[in-house]
Amino acid sequence: MTRDLNLMERLPMKNNRLRSIYSVPYAAWILLFVLAPIALIVYYSFFDLTGNFTLSNYRNFFTSVYLQLTTSSFWYAFLITLFSLLIAYPTAYFITKTKHKQLWLLLIIIPSWINLLLKTYAFIGLMGLYGPLNALLEVVGIGKQQILFTDFSFVFVSVYIFIPFMILPIFNALDKLNPALIDASRDLGANSWTTFKRVVWPLTINGVKSGIQVVFIPALSLFMITRLIAGNKVITLGTAIEQQFLVTQNWGMGSTIAVFLILFMFIIMLFTTGKERGATGNGKNR
């Protein structure tokens, strides 16, 4: 993204010092609320229950239990992200086409302001054997299904939680899309799919990437839903950390899992920013 980097040089800066003064609050935040807690977590991860220095927490992480937790966390985070994207993209696209698009967008966010635990209880009622959803299934002739405590209910409710986070950045990307570009592509004889693939998608890729980041990363450490909606049939790293901190009070092991979560996140970031270059490349070829 050399384009952006130039942006800075074009800004009429009197001097760098002035610019850095503005960055102080953000830098202070990183120092106090990101680096300091990480230092603390890394520090704790080297201690066992009795407060002795040890590497055993790290050794423990490589036992089958935690590796299994890691793969299942990634698998579910992937599913949640995929379905969020599949549902959010058309939603965002159609909203940009509505008359009162800003209002509709706000109406997408409002449900997320009602307490999550309450909404989860509502889902337990809605998806229950005697709930409205099953009543509907029965009317349609499919008959009663066990919906709660399945992979379906878990992914469904998780997507429900994350969907506004996916819609917003995609909407922002789509909204500024110049309709003339699409018309031009059509005039040049491209069909809808080609137009989407060659014109719309590359121009919205940054929004999509933001969406993926704010869905996939927190989905790795989901908890609560794993218990309430999946009945502990899905267990993620987040659940394991919560247990270690609150129930077992093994802060060392909890911190170790957190260290790995952060490492995974760094790897994901590397991966997605690597992709970024490719996308811009495409854009330039256009």
């Binding site: 807690p37 901190f245 995974f264």
Partner: peptide
Amino acid sequence: LSLNNILIVSPDVIIGAS
């Protein structure tokens, strides 16, 4: 950017405790 995202990936218990 990665540092920025650390608080998103960290479970709330850890953020709260630290």
